[in-house]
Design a protein around this nucleic acid. Structure first.
Lengths: 386, 386
DNA sequence: CCACTTTGTATATTGGTTAAACTAAGTTTT
DNA sequence: AAAACTTAGTTTAACCAATATACAAAGTGG
C-alpha cells in the first residue's frame, strides 16, 4: 500500500527533520533550527520538547548572546542508546560497539578458522553477547545490530550467495533477531562501507558516492542522492565481475576478463612475473622496502583499477569515489597509475566535479557503516520528494 | 531549504496519489480508490471533487454493480491539455503532439541539413509553433514541451556537450521558454527513451529499468525506483564509453576499447571484413535478403552488446532492459548472440528476475518520453519516502 | 534605567483527515 | 413485490498539527 498523508505523517516528517538537523549540526538553538528548517518557532519548540522527553536530545545550557536573550543550546544525545556494527570477513570477525552517532566505544576481533554457517553463527553470537554485555547503561540500551557480509544480501536479510564463505541462502537476520530480540540489519560489505565513508569518512555533504572495496575481490557500494542504492532485488554493485577484457581470462563466475581478476588480490595468481609474496600485507612491506616486482605489481593493478573506475564514472557520474578494502593500504603505489588512467580515459565533463580518494576509515569503514545503518533504522528517517 | 510538513503538503501528497492512481488504472470508482490508497472515503470524495473541477478527472457514468449501488466510474481526463514531445537527432527533428497520457495526436518530422545551433533553434521554433497551432482546444492548452537531445544535459536544461552536433553549453531550455512561455524540459535522448518505455512500452510495474539506445553511439537511461537517475550533475548513463577491451581501439573520447566502438554503428568502421553497406537500414535490408556478411556483422555486434549489458546488469541489477535506437530494428540477428552472451556471463542471481527486451516504441520512445516528462511536470508528483 | 533584541512559550485560528452516521441506489431472499 | 442486505458516495462533528500573533523571559547597550 502506498504512503498517504495525514497529520501523523506531517509530525513524523518534521520531527525527523529536526532530529537529524540537530544530529548533523551540534550547538543549535531552537531559534536557529526554526530558521534553518523553515518551521515555525512554536512547532520547533513542541517537537523539541518531545525529543527531550524521549531523551534523544539534551539541553546543554545557554550559548552566546548576539544582542538579546541567550539561546539554549541543544545537543543530539548520542548516548541515548548503543548499536553494534559487525563485519564478517573470510578470516576474521570484527565488531564495534558505537553510540548513536557512530563513535566507537569498544572494538573486538575474533579469528575465524571455519566458515560453515553454524560455527560462524556461534562465533557471531558469542561476540555479540560480549559486546552487548559491555554496553553502558543508557536509556534505550542496545537498539540495533548491523552486519556487513561479503556477499549478496536481499531485502529480507538473507545472504543469498557468499562465494568466499560457500554460503547460500542463509537467513542471517532472522536467526540473529530471534537470538537477541533486537532489530538486525544485514548488508553487503561494500554497501556498509559506503555508508561508513558517507557519514564518517570523506563523504560529508556528498550526494552521489561510490565506494569501491578492493580486497580478495572487488565490490562497490553505490550512494545515490544520499541513499544506498541496492538494485531491484537488493544486490546491485557486483562490479567486480564487470568485463574489461572481452576475451580475457576465464573467471569462476562463468564470464571472462572480469575486473577483479586484474585489480584485486586475485591478480596475484595471474601475475606476469614471479611475485615475491602472495599476500597483500607482505607485498606492501616488500614494496616499501624497495622491491621492484612488488611495486610493479601494484602499479599494474592500479592501472586496471583505473580502467574499471572509468566505467563506473561514466555510468554513475559520482561526485566522490572512495577506495577501501585491504588493497587501499597499497595506496602509495596504486594511486599514481590509477589517477593517470582515469585522467586519460574519463570524459571531460565527468572530471569536473569528481574526486577520487582513499578510505580514511580504512578497514573499519564496513563495521562502522553497519552500525550506522542500525542507528538510522532506530532513529527513523521520513521525508518528502517533490 | 528542506521540505517541511504541513497540511498543504498532506493535501498535495494525497491529491497527487489519487490523480496518478486514476491515471494508471482506468475504470475506478471513488470506493475502489479509497481501498487501493488507504485513504478515507470522504477524503477521496473531496479531492476527486477538486480534480473534477480542475477538469483533470471526468465522471463517465455508472459501472457494474456487485450487489449494491452502482459505482460512478472516473477517468483521467487526458485531454485536459496537450504537450509536445520532441527528439533532436543528427539528421532529423521529430516531434509529436500528445495528450496528457502520452497518446499521440499529431506527428511531424523535419530533415536537418545544418547543425549549428541558430539554425537548429529556428527549425525547432518553426516546428513547435506549427504543432502548438494544431493543438485542439483544451481546458489548459499546451502545458509543456519536452525535448530529448543527443548529449549531456544539466539540471538547468543546458546542453553541456553534444559531440554529434558540435554543441557546447547551449542554453536550450531558457531560449525555448522565452519564446513560448511554456515550461520546457530538456533531457538526454536515452533518459527520455527510458521514460517512454517505462510508461508506454514494456516497463509497466517495473521499478528498475535500463534503457539502452544503440544507434550512432550508445547511451543509457537509468530508471531507479521508478525514477530517472541522472547522476551528480545530471548526466549519468554515458555507458557508451565503458571500456570492454582494456587495450582496444582508441576512441575519440580519449579512452580505448569503448563499448560503442564495437556495438553501435561505429562498429561498421572497424568491421573485420568488407561490408556490403555502411548504413543500418540498408544493412538490415541486405541481412533480410540473406546477405551473409551483413548478418555476421550484426551477430558480432550482438555479442558485444551482450558483453556491455552484462556489465550494466552486474552494476545496476535491473528488472528489465530495453534495447532501443536505430539498431533495435536489427533485432532478428542481434538478439540471439546477445542473449547467449548474457546467459553465459551473468551471475546466476542476477538472471532470476531479469528480462531483456527490444523496444516496442521503436524510434518513437524518445519523443514520447520527452512529452511524458512535460506532462508529469504539469501534473506534479509529490510523495513520501520512509 | 530605559530602549531595543533575541529566545522561547502560550493562545486562538486554520485547514486538512477521519470515524461514524447517513442517504442513495442497487441486488438477493422470502 | 416487499423485506433484507450490499455497496457507493456524502454529510457531520471531532481531532490534531502547524501557524500567526501576542507575549513573557532574558539578555545588550547607551
Amino acid at each position: 500500500m502506498k504512503v498517504t498523508g495525514d497529520q501523523a505523517l506531517v509530525k513524523k516528517i518534521n520531527k525527523s527533520l529536526i532530529l537529524h538537523t540537530i544530529r548533523k549540526h551540534p550547538e543549535l538553538s531552537r531559534a536557529r533550527i526554526s530558521e534553518m528548517t523553515g518551521l515555525n518557532k512554536a512547532t520547533v519548540s513542541n517537537l523539541v520538547a518531545e525529543l527531550l522527553e524521549e531523551q534523544l536530545v539534551l539541553e546543554a545550557g545557554p550559548g552566546e548572546s548576539s544582542g538579546g536573550r541567550k539561546p539554549l543550546i541543544l545537543h543530539f544525545n548520542a548516548m541515548a542508546g548503543c548499536v553494534v556494527g559487525m563485519e564478517l570477513r573470510v578470516k576474521h570477525l570484527t565488531a564495534v560497539l558505537c553510540n548513536l552517532n557512530g563513535a566507537v566505544l569498544y572494538e573486538t576481533e575474533l579469528p575465524l578458522d571455519q566458515h560453515d554457517f553454524p560455527s560462524v553463527l556461534e562465533n557471531m553470537k558469542t561476540m555479540l553477547t560480549g559486546l552487548i554485555a559491555m554496553a553502558p547503561t543508557t536509556h534505550y540500551g542496545v537498539v540495533g545490530i548491523g552486519v556487513g557480509v561479503p556477499g549478496m544480501v536481499d531485502e529480507d536479510g538473507v545472504v543469498l550467495f557468499a562465494p568466499n564463505l560457500s554460503w547460500e541462502k542463509v537467513h542471517l537476520r532472522e536467526l540473529l533477531e530471534e537470538s537477541f530480540s533486537i532489530p538486525v540489519i544485514i548488508d553487503n560489505e561494500a554497501n556498509s562501507g559506503a555508508l561508513g565513508e558517507l557519514n564518517f569518512g570523506r563523504g560529508e555533504d556528498v550526494r552521489h558516492l561510490l565506494y569501491v572495496s578492493a580486497g580478495s575481490g572487488i565490490g562497490s557500494g553505490i550512494i545515490i542522492g544520499g541513499e544506498l542504492y541496492k538494485g531491484s532485488r537488493g544486490y546491485a554493485g557486483e562490479t567486480g565481475h564487470m568485463c574489461i577484457e572481452a576475451e580475457g581470462t576465464p573467471c569462476s563466475c562463468g564470464s571472462r576478463g572480469c575486473w577483479e581478476l586484474y585489480a584485486s588480490e586475485k591478480a596475484y595468481d595471474l601475475a606476469a612475473m614471479e611475485l615475491p609474496a602472495y599476500h597483500t600485507p607482505e607485498l606492501i612491506r616488500l614494496a616499501a622496502d624497495g622491491n621492484a616486482a612488488a611495486r610493479q605489481q601494484f602499479e599494474v593493478m592500479g592501472s586496471y583499477l583505473g580502467i574499471g573506475l572509468t566505467n563506473l564514472i561514466n555510468g554513475f557520474n559520482p561526485e566522490l569515489i572512495v577506495i577501501g578494502g585491504a588493497l587501499s593500504d597499497a595506496r602509495k603505489w596504486l594511486e599514481g597509475p590509477m589517477q593517470q588512467v582515469v585522467a586519460e580515459r574519463t570524459l571531460p565533463y565527468h572530471k569536473q566535479q569528481l574526486e577520487i580518494a582513499f578510505s580514511t576509515l580504512g578497514s573499519r569503514a564496513t563495521m562502522i557503516g553497519a552500525g550506522f545503518s542500525a542507528a538510522m533504522h532506530f532513529l527513523g528517517h521520513t521525508r518528502v520528494m517533490v
